[in-house]
């Protein structure tokens, strides 16, 4: 049986987490290729639709990266994102998307090392958690492998 490689979509704020990912790269800090990064201008512009769509398309985890409270380039977009994540988590939970699959993390532009840690940690945890119930391609793999 092939080892499960989780798919993660990352919505990274242009001003902090995305820059942190850049820093991680230039600092030669490697992190798992399981994450596919989408750059957004602010964690506060991550519409719940984006997250829902990602899960419906079978990703195993979604990571939103934003600036620490007080550091938002747009003053308070990250604080709005936090409430939105709290709300959306409740909806996803009801239908079997474990809250451990949906992360919001504050990662500042200078925290390349933290970005590495967070992506490592999330990937490890998702491997233990197994594929998302909506990860149809993986379900198919399991059938073929068994």
């Amino acid at each position: 049986m092939s080892e499960f490689e989780p798919k993660i979509v990352g919505f990274f704020c242009n001003w902090c987490t995305f820059t942190a990912a850049d820093l991680a790269g230039t600092s030669r800090l490697s992190y798992p290729p399981n994450i596919k990064i989408i750059r957004v201008m602010c964690s506060g512009m991550v519409d719940p639709k984006y997250v829902i769509k990602a899960f419906l398309n079978g990703v195993d985890g979604v990571l939103i990266g934003g600036c620490w409270p007080g550091d938002c380039h747009y003053i308070n977009g990250n604080l709005k994102a936090r409430r939105r994540v709290a709300m959306l988590t409740e909806i996803l939970k009801q239908y079997g998307i474990d809250e451990r699959r949906f992360w919001l993390r504050w990662i500042a532009a200078s925290e390349g090392n933290m970005l590495q840690e967070v992506v490592n940690e999330m990937t490890d945890k998702l491997i233990k958690l197994g594929p998302s119930p909506l990860n149809k391609s993986h379900k198919a793999d399991l059938v073929l492998d068994s």
């Binding site: 007080g70 604080l79 409430r83 709300m87 504050w106």
Partner: peptide, 19 residues
């Protein structure tokens, strides 16, 4: 309405990170 207000020090458990 919940998504019309927000505060610096709330819902800390969402990220679980404290500076």
């Amino acid at each position: 309405q919940p998504l019309t207000i927000f505060d610096h020090d709330e819902f800390v458990e969402v990220t679980g990170q404290v500076k």
